[in-house]
């Protein structure tokens, strides 16, 4: 029963993240600056909650995204899986401490992997199906750059805010977290 409630709560949170992400896209559809809330949430979740079980949540997230995407089914799944794997690998295996540069770098890497993978699949799909397209590498790179900057900025901002809140509301947990984060004696920022 406890696990069921936990799963339901996780699913609700996932749905809320997806709704927030898609609503942001809807509201700011006319700007080239796109904030990828889902990847930002994955980075923050991986940074603060070191439980691999949370990675299962990318399945409903990917499914929701696929449902509201015009791309062939599976492109987002693959892009999201690869970017999540990259984020997880960077944060838990390569950069084991937590600091603003690490969070920024990980988010940037996640966005790059996601966007390159997704755009490559789209381009390959057009190429293989011999469809005429208006695909422009310049536009794609510009959009990716804008998305990268915006997402990195807001992820770092959220990281700082959550760190401060954690430190104020749960000082013991923050201490344990900091001890874990700096187990390799690296410089800490928060």
């Amino acid at each position: 029963m406890k696990n069921f409630i936990k799963t339901a709560v996780y699913l609700l949170i996932t749905a809320a993240i997806f709704i927030a992400h898609y609503s942001l896209l809807n509201i700011f559809f006319f700007t080239s600056a796109e904030y990828h809330l889902i990847l930002s949430a994955i980075v923050l979740t991986t940074a603060f909650i070191r439980k691999d079980v949370l990675l299962w949540l990318i399945i409903p997230l990917a499914f929701f995204m696929e449902t509201f995407s015009s791309a062939p089914f599976g492109f987002i799944c693959l892009a999201l899986l690869l970017s999540t794997a990259t984020i997880h690998w960077l944060l838990n295996i390569i950069f084991t401490n937590r600091s603003i540069p690490i969070i920024a770098l990980t988010t940037a890497a996640g966005i790059c992997i996601y966007r390159i993978c997704f755009d490559f699949l789209i381009f390959a799909n057009w190429f293989l199906r011999d469809q005429s397209s208006v695909f422009s590498f310049g536009t794609a790179f510009f959009d990716m750059g804008m998305e990268l900057l915006i997402t990195v900025f807001f992820t770092v901002v959220f990281y700082v805010i959550i760190s401060m809140i954690t430190r104020i509301l749960f000082p013991r947990k923050a201490l344990i977290f900091e001890a874990q984060s700096n187990s390799y004696g690296q410089k800490k920022y928060f």
């Binding site: 749905a15 997806f18 709704i19 898609y22 609503s23 942001l24 809807n26 509201i27 700011f28 559809f29 006319f30 929701f64 509201f68």
Partner: peptide, 14 residues
Amino acid sequence: RLFSDEFVVSNDIG
């Protein structure tokens, strides 16, 4: 169906 109402609202806002 579950999300369309929310997205209609956000689309109107946008």
